[in-house]
Amino acid sequence: MGDYVDIGPVHMWYETRGTGEPLVLLHGGLDTNASWGAQLDPLAAHFRVVAPERRGHGHTPDVEGPLSYRTMTDDLARFVDKAIGAPVHVVGWSDGAIVGVMLALARPDLVRKLVLIGVNVDVAAYVPQFAEVARLPADSPEFHPFRAVYEAVSPDGPEHWPVVFEKVTSMWRAEPQLPLADLGAVRARTLVMVGDDDVISLEHTVAVYRAIPDAELAVIPGASHVAAMEKPDLVNTILLDFLRRDASPTVMPVRRAATTAHA
């Protein structure tokens, strides 16, 4: 079921499915909730899944001015406060994961568990091939699938695609620039997930995992930046295990040994 809520200047569209503890799904850049097609029903069987589309994405109209991760994080905080009114589990992919971790830092009171799929906190984390893609024009064949989805649902009309495209790709070229040390302030139990052939380097992913206290790591084999689409059964199993259960005690902990010793 889809609906709109006004969040400051943003007329934000969101989809809701299921009942139970609220779980917010955050899509990637230049994408829509369609990217969660393989996750919505399995997650909604256990949670109240709430999937907003950010300003200028999907059914949510664009807002005048540039786009930034900080602006989108502020939008999300207002959305959770107004549309949900309670702490939520957050599952973010790509740009949505960046917004998710920034929300966990800015508003720890709103985030219960946090899943970051294909996340980067530094613009230098992209593999060189993606850095080149981010410099392509709006009519490039590489972006045709994103453009088709946008044009099918955007209330701004097909002619607005180049405007949103420039806002998003300009942001990609300049952001994020979040120091790894800042991630030490994340208090939500966190799972970091990545495809083994992602556009985010594995080295950066491991650095993020190590920077977040007691984070857990999942590398999806044979998958790229869209692991949730390519390996949905595996990704959904890992997501539900993490979201539905407390952390399991391990026999020979090393990284989490101090936490285990004081448990």
Rank of each mutant, 00 (worst) to 15 (best):
G2I: 02
Y4W: 06
D6E: 15
P9L: 11
P9A: 13
V10S: 09
M12F: 01
M12E: 01
R17A: 14
G18I: 07
E21R: 14
E21K: 14
P22Y: 07
P22A: 11
P22S: 11
L25K: 00
D31K: 07
N33I: 15
W36H: 10
A44D: 07
A45M: 03
F47Y: 14
F47P: 05
F47N: 03
R48E: 12
V49C: 03
V50I: 15
R55M: 06
R55C: 02
G56W: 04
T60N: 02
T60H: 04
V63F: 11
E64R: 13
L67I: 15
L67H: 14
S68Y: 07
S68V: 09
T73P: 03
D75I: 00
R78V: 03
F79L: 02
D81M: 01
K82N: 02
K82H: 12
A83H: 00
A86C: 01
H89N: 15
V91L: 04
V91N: 04
G92F: 04
W93H: 15
G96W: 05
I98H: 02
M102F: 03
L103K: 06
A106Y: 00
P108T: 05
D109N: 02
D109A: 01
L110M: 12
V111D: 04
R112L: 06
L114F: 10
L114N: 00
V115Q: 07
L116S: 08
N120F: 06
D122R: 14
D122E: 13
A124T: 15
V127T: 14
E132H: 08
A134P: 00
P137I: 08
P137E: 08
P137D: 12
D139M: 06
S140K: 05
E142T: 13
H144E: 14
P145Q: 07
F146V: 07
A152R: 13
A152D: 12
A152E: 11
P155S: 09
D156T: 07
G157Y: 12
G157E: 13
V164F: 11
S170N: 15
S170A: 14
M171P: 03
W172F: 15
A174Y: 00
P176D: 06
Q177H: 14
L178S: 09
P179Y: 12
D182L: 09
L183R: 06
L183E: 05
G184K: 07
V186C: 08
R187F: 02
R187T: 14
A188E: 09
A188Q: 06
A188G: 03
V192M: 07
V194F: 02
G195I: 08
D197Y: 07
T205V: 15
A207Y: 03
I212V: 15
P213K: 13
A215H: 08
E216I: 00
L217T: 06
L217M: 09
V219T: 14
I220G: 03
I220H: 08
I220L: 12
P221Y: 05
P221F: 07
H225W: 10
H225A: 11
A227P: 02
M229F: 08
E230I: 05
P232C: 04
D233N: 05
L234D: 04
V235N: 03
N236T: 12
N236K: 10
L239C: 11
L240K: 05
L240P: 04
D241V: 01
D241N: 15
R245S: 14
D246K: 10
A247N: 12
S248M: 14
V251R: 14
R255H: 12
R256H: 15
A257R: 13
T259M: 13
A261W: 10
A261F: 13
A261T: 09
